[in-house]
């Protein structure tokens, strides 16, 4: 089985501070991989490296067997393949939800609003936002905004979706509606990488869980193994703090 997305020896530094210290990771087609680890361990940076929002300093990233980490490579086609959703939604506040979603397909794929509107309507109703399409972000709850952000990324029809702690900024009662969206995507066979603090969710749905510690993947494996029988002391310590 060849991996959909493959990282080998990925290093990333900010100034003197090395944040990713040689990451090896394989994500198979249709797999859901969860990154867990303390705040500051490098989860966000690793995700941002995967869709080239941050250039890596060393190592290689393959997407479907193609090296996408080649310096100087145009990142735009890669980003169309790998969508990302951020903790802070980052919706465009001056556009309605529907306009947020349609902007990139219009500009990048050259599709017209008329063509897009029905597809976008389907996505909104699928995620329970059928009546919120023409609302502005500040008229939506956090959970609704985050679902719009997910729809916005999905509208580019990516092959892989990255999620960076997308429930961390939400009030507890809104977390469920966003996790349901992830469950739905999982059911559709979307390939996903999540940085998350929702251990219960990771345990329930992940194919693989990776524990990041100070820029290294210290331990990885199926959730049952990693959560019930962690090998490393630091993993044990982390899990005992969060579980």
């Amino acid at each position: 089985m060849t991996a959909k997305l493959s990282l080998r020896g990925v290093r990333k530094r900010f100034g003197d501070h090395e944040v990713c210290k040689g990451i090896d990771l394989d994500v198979a087609d249709g797999e859901m991989v969860c990154l867990i680890g303390a705040s500051g361990s490098g989860k966000s940076t690793l995700l941002r490296c995967m869709n080239l929002l941050e250039p890596i300093d060393d190592g290689t990233i393959w997407l479907d067997g193609t090296d996408i980490s080649e310096p100087g490579l145009d990142p735009q086609p890669v980003r169309q393949q790998i969508g990302i959703v951020f903790q802070s939604y980052n919706l465009f506040p001056h556009m309605t939800a529907a306009e947020n979603v349609m902007l990139a397909p219009r500009r990048v794929y050259g599709r017209s609003r008329d063509v897009l509107r029905p597809q976008v309507e389907r996505l909104f109703s699928r995620f329970g936002l059928g009546d919120r399409m023409d609302h502005y972000p500040d008229q939506l709850s956090g959970g609704q905004q985050q679902r719009v952000a997910i729809i916005r990324a999905l509208a580019m029809e990516p092959q892989i979706m990255l999620f960076d702690e997308i429930t961390s900024a939400l009030d507890p009662e809104l977390v469920g509606e966003v996790l349901d969206v992830l469950r739905d995507l999982r059911g559709q066979g979307m390939t996903m990488v999540l940085a998350t603090h929702e251990m219960g969710f990771a345990r329930e749905l992940a194919d693989k869980v990776c524990f990041l510690d100070a820029g290294r993947i210290l331990e990885q494996g199926p959730p049952d193994e990693l959560f019930s029988a962690p090998r490393e002391a630091r993993t044990k310590a982390f899990l005992s703090r969060v579980l």
Partner: peptide
């Protein structure tokens, strides 16, 4: 983060400026 969001959707720098940054 607004530029990041635009870049992550594959928008060009030009479009990011024109549709995301400048209007705000």
């Amino acid at each position: 983060s607004q530029r990041s969001a635009a870049a992550s959707l594959g928008l060009s720098e030009r479009d990011t400026m024109r549709f995301v940054v400048l209007p705000q």
